[in-house]
Design a protein around this nucleic acid. Structure first.
Length: 884
RNA sequence: GGGCGCAUAGCUCAGUUGGUUAGAGCGCUACAUUCACAUUGUAGAGGCCAUAGGUCCGAGUCCUAUUGCGCCCACCA
């Protein structure tokens, strides 16, 4: 069977097969268990519109590693999957599809449009789920949730009502970020600021009393001047003191506006006089409230000018800007235009420049919610990994602003607010009924003429409940009790504010407990030049293509091995070759072991076997190295150092198990002890690799003679510290150096294999004590030498070579085979270097500060190092003499 | 304007609380090749650890300043 295995690992044959096998055997499912501890991760729900990109691939690989690791460790391990309805994003996608039919959402009407979105969701919404499966994600798919599921929506409504009743939700007229294209309000986080090249326009406003005298104001958005209701100056500003309280004539509109004084005006900027447009600028809004100015809205929701803009009515905001500038120019009221870089908010979905816009919206009061969430992080109940994100989080939380949660779109959770027509006719501020379900009649006037709020909730208003709403909160289910609070959240830095912070707040508000204990923030995946990967830049590396070309295991392993501690990942496609090559190495090493395995020989428990059998040095060594690696990998995984864990595994498997161990045992492969150790180490290593590379490890696992079930059901290898032997490891390390030195020497001297070579080893005491005939044989074998002898002196006879330990790079061939002069010079340099180092070390060892403060092992190490160096000098001197 | 991060081999990056001779992958050079694997093996070259000070017996690692990048937040109209 083994012989049939191809020389190369073929992920295409394995991946879908084993994924199906796992799913069919329900190996991902998890439920409350009495004798196991829970370990739970909730997935950051990808948008239903999403397609898998490298960010997802990284994010979900990490989660899968954690989940599989914990599962093998014996935790009841649950990875809760699902998708997010992604209000604006999804609505945009469906609107685009409609546009192709020449339709707008208004043509369908609200109900039909929402039906269309659901249809779309049925058809395409699980794309990303299928892609996650390709990646190997071991989510419990039977629990898959969607933020618009019926009971999930019920949770959302519940939360709205609860917060409203606590007076933490209010409605009000404020300047919000308005996307004219999506025609909805956006939260501050959704309006990402970006620099753009604009101009600063200097406009002259004439005084009413003296039309020949002007106050010049500077603005970046001249079209808003139509809504100006004042000009403000700093009261300390001598230039304008005399004008305070006087009246200006607003050009084009001929409105009379006052000059007011306010300390918030920066005298340095522009002219020191600022036009005040309370309905179109957040600062001006504050000024307007403070000075009781009029609020004049000059724009329609689509950012065309409205009737208040008089002759400019109907023009788009930027067209209006041009027209106004032209008209002002004609009137001689445009003083100058200076280039000016400014930062403006852009809609995070369609990148349209957002307009600060006065409108009535719903808000959540955040300060009271933030308090326990700040506390929990400060007290370490919730930990960020890496730690530095703690500061970022706290900084935002301590300056938190109220959250605008209403959106003027159709796709989403409709706000559970009902209005009584009757009551509102009497008083527009009255007749508000907040209720999770539609009330029959107005509790006040008993009228049945009710209508629901048109707006829907911000997408994140449902996502922030994810850690418990997925368990059907507010029902107190057994699942919720068992799995909440969850264990770890794995996510990207850009959604700390959007999502992570708000989940923590919701957790404390509604569950009185933090939603998770650890937060692992990984880096952003960028291209080689450090740019964010995006479709428009065309620098995207598609994970599915990588899976197709290199395999999912290769993708996972490569991604993980370059993700250090939340640093951003600069990714080049070649990076995946490393993962593919590693998979292939695992494949071939396993193929070798299996081909040489006598299944009846390996039916032994390693511990029992180890006791009755005296293992030789090589077998002892690989066991020691395996357990050292296992220990290290475990610690690294527990500390969220995924790249280090991956690299530890890689180094062990490739450079120790394959490069040395499998080579060393070839002559003794039929030996009983070698059979047992070779098999056991491979088998345990596969288990250790499984969380990282699930498919290939399963494929090989299934071919092991003792294989039972799935590798997923195996336990994480038990750490046997008694088998770790550092001295043995060091000894072997020395042996490897000897072998390499000899090999190197042979190559340098161009000694053919048939030529007789005798090697004398000049040993340090340590090696002599521990050396065994077995080790000698290994050295002879691998270095292909005929005889090996020990000498105390550093001399060699004819046709013999001396290898000096602890100074491996000097091999001294006799009979003038190398340039003696160069060798002498080289060695003399080394002696000089060593001498100066010895001087330093001696000074150090004389210093009481060092000998008292430094750990004993280190002092000891320094001492032996000093001795070694002295010994080396002696050897080098002998060599130099020999060469002369 | 505030905050955070980064600067180590040609390239991309590791380097745990300061402590043996600063590492890996890729790339490069030479050699090897029926013996698990060319998606391979062995060896080699290549580092004033950004700069300048400081603390310490000892600094890539800690402190201060400087320079150059990157990111996040913020209402300079």
């Amino acid at each position: 069977m083994i012989d049939e295995l191809s020389k190369q690992y073929n992920p295409k044959i394995s991946e879908d097969k084993w994924y199906k096998f796992w799913e069919e055997n329900k190996l991902f499912s998890s439920k409350p268990s009495q004798d196991k501890l829970p370990y739970c991760i909730v997935i950051p729900p990808p948008n239903v519109t999403g397609i898998l990109h490298m960010g997802h691939a990284l994010n979900n690989s990490i989660q899968d590693i954690l989940i599989r690791y914990k599962r093998m460790q014996g935790f009841e391990s649950l990875w809760m999957p699902g998708t997010d309805h992604a209000g604006i994003a999804t609505q945009n996608v469906v609107e685009k599809a409609l546009a192709k039919e020449g339709l707008k959402r208004q043509d369908l009407g609200r109900q039909k449009f929402i039906q269309r979105v659901w249809q779309w969701k049925e058809q395409y919404g699980s794309t990303i789920i299928h892609q996650l499966k390709k990646l190997g994600a071991s989510c419990d798919w039977s629990r898959e949730r969607f933020t618009m599921d019926e009971d999930y929506s019920a949770s959302v409504a519940e939360v709205f009502v609860a917060l409203y009743e606590k007076k933490l939700i209010y409605q009000g007229n404020y300047i919000i970020n308005w996307c004219p294209r999506c025609q909805t309000a956006l939260s501050d986080e959704e309006a990402a600021h970006a620099e753009l090249q604009g101009s600063l326009y200097y406009l002259k406003y004439p005084l009413k009393n003296n039309p020949l005298e002007f106050i010049t104001v500077a603005t970046t958005r001249p079209e808003t001047m139509l809504g100006d209701t004042a000009v403000a100056v700093n009261p300390k500003d001598k230039r304008y003191k005399q004008y305070i309280g006087k009246t200006l004539i607003l050009p084009l509109i001929n409105r009379q506006i006052k000059i007011i004084a306010d300390a918030s005006v920066d005298m340095e900027f522009g002219t020191g006089a600022v036009k005040v447009t309370p309905a179109h600028d957040p600062n001006d809004y504050v000024l307007g409230k403070k000075h009781k100015l009029d609020f004049i809205n000059v724009m329609a929701p689509d950012a065309t000018m409205n009737d208040a803009a008089q002759k400019y009515s109907g023009l788009d905001r930027f067209k209006a800007r041009e027209a106004i500038l032209e008209d002002l120019g004609d009137l001689g009221l445009l003083e100058k235009i200076n280039p000016h870089t400014l930062s403006a908010g852009h809609c995070y979905r369609c990148h349209t420049i957002v307009e600060p816009y006065l409108s009535k919206q719903w808000f959540v009061k955040m300060k009271p919610l933030a308090r326990p969430a700040i506390e929990a992080v400060k007290k370490g109940k919730i930990k960020f990994h890496p730690q530095r994100w703690t500061k970022v989080y706290l900084n935002w939380m301590e300056n938190i602003q109220d959250w605008c949660i209403s959106r003027q779109i159709w796709w989403g959770h409709r706000i559970p607010v009902y209005y009584c027509k009757n009551c509102r006719q009497k008083n527009p501020e009255q007749g508000i009924i907040v209720s999770a379900t539609k009330p029959d009649k107005c509790p006040k006037c008993k009228s049945a003429d009710l209508f629901q709020e048109e707006d829907v909730l911000d997408t994140w208003f449902s996502s922030w409940l994810w850690p418990f709403a997925t368990f059907y909160w507010p029902k107190e289910s057994a699942d919720l009790k068992y799995f909440y609070p969850t264990s770890t959240l794995v996510t990207a830095p850009e959604i700390i504010f959007f999502w992570v912070a708000r989940m923590i707040m919701a957790g404390f508000e509604f569950k009185k407990q933090a939603p998770f204990k650890d937060i692992y923030i990984h880096g952003t995946v960028r291209d080689v030049e450090g740019k964010k990967m995006s479709k428009s830049l065309g620098n995207v590396i598609d994970p599915l293509e990588i899976i197709d070309e290199y395999g999912a295991d290769a993708l996972r392993f490569s991604l993980i091995s370059i993700t250090s501690q939340g640093q951003d990942v600069y990714l080049a496609k070649e990076r995946f070759e490393q993962g593919r090559n590693f998979a292939n190495k695992i494949w071939n090493a396993s193929r070798f072991v299996l081909a040489n395995l006598k299944p009846e020989e390996v039916n032994e428990d390693l511990c029992v076997f180890f006791k009755k059998e005296q293992l030789d040095i090589v077998n002892r060594w690989i066991l020691s190295r395996f357990y050292s690696t296992l220990d290290k990998v475990g610690k690294e995984l527990d500390g969220y150092k995924f790249n280090e864990a991956a690299n530890s595994i890689y180094a062990f498997f490739w450079h120790e198990f394959c490069d040395w161990y499998l080579e060393l045992i070839k002559p003794q492969i039929n030996q009983k002890q070698t059979q047992v150790v070779m098999y056991k180490v491979l088998e345990k290593t596969l288990r250790m690799i499984h969380p990282f590379m699930p498919f290939i490890t399963e494929e090989i696992w299934q071919r092991l003679p003792q294989a039972k079930n799935s590798i997923m059901q195996q336990s994480w290898p038990h750490l046997q510290k008694n088998l770790i032997n550092i001295k043995n490891e060091q000894l072997m390390q020395t042996a490897f150096e000897i072998i390499n030195t000899i090999r190197n020497m042979r190559a340098e001297l161009d000694v053919g294999l048939q030529n007789r070579v005798n090697i004398k080893l000049a040993f340090s005491d340590k090696l002599k004590q521990e050396s065994t005939q077995v080790l000698f044989n290994h050295i002879k074998n691998l270095a292909k030498i005929d005889s090996l002898s020990i000498t105390e002196k550093y001399t060699a006879g004819v046709n013999e070579y001396v290898v000096l330990l602890k100074d491996m790079h000097i091999a001294m061939p006799l009979a003038g085979l190398v340039d003696a002069g160069a060798q002498i010079k080289k060695n003399q340099l080394k002696i000089d270097k060593l001498k100066s180092e010895i001087k330093n070390k001696e000074a150090m060892l004389d210093n009481k500060n060092f000998t008292q403060r430094a750990p004993k092992e280190i002092v000891e190490a320094e001492r032996t190092k000093l001795d070694d160096m002295a010994g080396q000098i002696a050897k080098l001197e002998v060599i130099i003499n020999g060469l002369r």
